[in-house]
Design a protein around this nucleic acid. Structure first.
Length: 564
RNA sequence: CGGGGCGUAGCGCAGUCUGGUAGCGCACCACACUGGGGGUGUGGUGGUCGCCGGUUCAAAUCCGGCCGCCCCGACCA
């Protein structure tokens, strides 16, 4: 392609709308433009990157026996009513109505459509297992789209669905997809980590996330360098601490005027926050409110708490007035001792010896509190976030943290869709059974941004070669001179003949502009042709992200690019 | 939806407090110089100051309403 005739609207300055590196750079390099919140137009270079990722995804999935299909973006409401999600899904599901007043949804995912497909087309267990996928635009009306492509409302996703009779078959395909995702991300050349995950509202079986490592990532992962354990912090189990041999003191009520927060209590009594216990009031599932007890230095894990039967999911905190009505005092003075609510104590809070908590009386706290003696009815559960240095749940060592961007997520769905949508087949013995399913998502457009987020420097993006918009960038520094133009044109032709994707900067711009923009675009190989070196019959070769430059004869350029 | 910030030329911003001729840098157009890291000079083009309404002799500026964007929280590929 010729830069002079390609739409590459680069920006010298950082647009005010962008905050994170990938968003800034993709905008500045002219890969994307925003249309409205969470909606983007893909310009030629951005689209090339996305297409290259798609091709890698197709090759790897096809290798593992998945078959590409294409389902509609617009889906009839009946299917969603059948699965029950028409009512369960909130505003995230964009709904619309056609001229006949029929309801539709803009597809945020395709479990319903694909389940309907399989129930209508597959009539024998002999056609199972089946694994189909599509690469398609999805729409989710996100509460807050942000970070450019990283959380867009409309995005390109590869979604695959597998169908099985029997856990063993599902397990095999699940492992295949795990391997396929690993192969895809490895080929792309991005640093990633696979972590155990909570399956959220989508399924209730095993689940793994594929996280691209990036400081700006929204996800926190806990991993153990010794044992290889890795999980999203949402999921990572916090083990019960070792029992202390400290002997319990008698409980005592102390006056704590105006002391409300954990930090206040700790400093007022001259103790660490780990000695304090906090009590959070959340909505219950059967009863109006439930109390959750955590150590003062720990954070509530809302995913874990939401999974408790007694707690209404998603976790919702009681308001100040509700707390007063339920406990008789304000938020800052509640404690688990003598509290007339179901109490769930985190393992660490339950193991804490002689701790401090609110006395359920304005302006008073209790000291010397011990769960087994003082609030023995509490159920002891794991509801906190792990922290760095916690023991790894597999017993292997200590947990460390890393941040990541979730680009892929694979789930075992079980019969969550096949039962309500009545997808069943007779097995070889003539017994009818519901099929079980797996589903496997990979955010293609998010991957573009995740790679940019991980692979860049101050000057621009540094694309890994397999997904770069072009393999090579030829900079013609003095294109108006016929001797330069001649060499450049024949180099360009040679590259094309050799199957090298090449962008030729044939514009009448100053060298500084060409170099700066070339860095911004991040194409791996660069050939610079200018009068100075050409007088000696040489051109310059360099790689994006490396400072080394080599001089070589134009005839050697194609080989140099090929050899990397 | 709750909290915070912002909306002035294509982009980045000043001007708003204290009402009175709409500005700067970049980009763009023309010319000249320059030609290996976003160069210099001269001359130009480009604005319903987010929208609607109000106050006022006079509104980018004050008041009210609405819309949009960004950041922090809940959601997720």
């Amino acid at each position: 392609m010729r830069a002079s005739r390609t739409l590459i609207p680069t920006l010298k300055e950082t647009p005010a709308e962008a905050e994170v590196a990938s968003h800034v750079l993709l905008l500045r390099a002219g890969f994307i433009r925003r249309v409205a919140g969470g909606l983007y137009t893909w310009l030629p270079l951005g689209l090339r990157v996305m297409r290259k990722i798609e091709m890698i995804v197709r090759e790897e999935l096809d290798r593992f026996g998945a078959q590409e299909i294409q389902m509609p973006v617009v889906q009839p409401a009946e299917l969603w009513r059948e699965s029950g999600r028409w009512d369960v899904m909130g505003a995230e599901l964009l709904r619309m109505r056609d001229r006949h007043e029929r309801d539709y949804a803009m597809g945020p995912t395709h479990e319903e459509v694909v389940t309907d497909l399989v129930r209508r087309t597959v009539d024998s267990y002999k056609e199972i297992p089946l694994n189909v996928y599509q690469i398609q635009t999805k729409f989710r009306d996100e509460i807050r789209p942000r970070f450019g492509l990283l959380r867009a409302r409309e995005f390109l996703m590869k979604d695959a669905y597998s169908f099985h009779l029997g856990e063993e078959s599902l397990e095999r395909t699940y492992r295949d997809m795990y391997d396929a995702y690993t192969a895809i991300l490895t080929r792309i050349g991005v640093d990633f980590r696979v972590v155990e995950a909570d399956s959220g509202t989508i399924g209730d079986g095993e689940s793994h996330e594929f996280q691209v490592l990036a400081e700006s990532g929204e996800d926190l992962m806990a991993y153990c360098p010794d044992s290889g354990y890795a999980a999203n912090v949402e999921k990572a189990e916090a083990l019960a601490p070792e029992l202390s041999d400290e002997s319990p003191n008698p409980i005592e009520k102390v006056e704590t005027p105006g002391v409300r927060t954990i930090a206040d209590v700790a400093s007022f009594l001259g103790l660490e926050s780990a000695r304090c216990v906090k009590t959070l009031i959340v909505r219950g599932d059967q009863v109006p409110f439930v109390a959750l007890v955590l150590r003062g230095d720990h954070e509530l894990n809302e995913t874990k708490a939401g999974r408790l039967d007694a707690v209404a999911a998603p976790v919702t905190f009681a308001g100040d007035e509700e707390v007063r009505a339920a406990t008789g005092c304000s938020v800052g003075s509640i404690g688990p001792v003598g509290l007339d609510l179901p109490v769930y104590a985190d393992r660490s809070a339950a193991a804490a010896v002689n701790c401090i908590c609110g006395a359920n009386e304005e302006g008073f706290h209790l000291t010397g509190v011990n769960q087994s003696r003082d609030f023995p009815d509490a159920r002891v559960v794991d509801i906190r976030n792990v922290v760095e240095g916690d023991p790894s749940p597999d017993g292997g060592g200590k947990l460390a943290f890393a941040r990541g961007i979730e680009v892929g997520h694979i789930f075992k769905l079980g019969d969550k869709y096949s039962v309500p949508m009545r997808l069943a087949l007779q097995d070889g013995a003539g017994t009818e059974a519901s099929l079980i399913m797996g589903c496997y998502g990979l955010g293609i457009s998010r991957l573009v941004a995740a790679v940019a987020e991980q692979c860049h420097d101050d000057n621009g993006i540094i694309w890994p070669a397999p997904i770069a918009p072009f393999d090579a960038h030829i900079l013609a520094l003095d294109y108006s001179r016929s001797d330069v133009a001649e060499v450049v044109e024949s180099l360009y032709e040679e590259c094309l003949d050799a199957g090298i994707d090449v962008l030729l900067d044939d514009r009448d711009e100053r060298p500084g502009v060409k170099f700066a923009e070339s860095d911004l675009l991040g194409i791996p190989h660069r050939i610079t042709v200018g009068v100075r070196n050409l007088a000696k019959g040489l051109v310059e070769y360099g790689r994006r992200g490396e400072s080394a430059r080599e001089l070589l004869a134009p005839a050697e350029a194609v080989d140099r690019i090929r050899s990397g």
